[in-house]
Amino acid sequence: MKKIFVVAFLLFLASCASHMMYDQTIFSISSDVKLVAINTNSTVRERDGQMLAQVMGISKTNQSVYYKFVWFDANGMKISTSLSQWKKVNLREDAEFFWNAVAPSKRAASYRVYVTDDIGDGIIE
């Protein structure tokens, strides 16, 4: 019985180690992206009401990833903007990274961040 508990505990730890915890209401991260941690904070500039966001994290390995910020208004409607384009970056193993973004307009009330290692080739079949 003891052995079963030990094995179960080890399995639990292993599962904790492989699944990074992150705020799923803000991030959508592809399972092939290997990160140690990822977090975000945002602020609204007092002078002009401009929302600024920052994502910071640590990469588990050397990898190339794409990320994009998608902005929403107070009603949860997506704001159409050229600023929500995929951006490709190289991440280094165990190194911190910071991604900054500015809301496209004062209408922006929230945002989501998408991270993936593959955006396909873009060909519409």
């Binding site: 384009q85 995929w86 955006i119 396909g120 080739d121 873009g122 060909i123 519409i124 079949e125």
Partner: peptide
């Protein structure tokens, strides 16, 4: 000739 998705173009 194929169309390319503007948002996910990595051609």
């Amino acid at each position: 000739t194929v169309l390319i998705d503007n948002e996910n173009d990595s051609t």
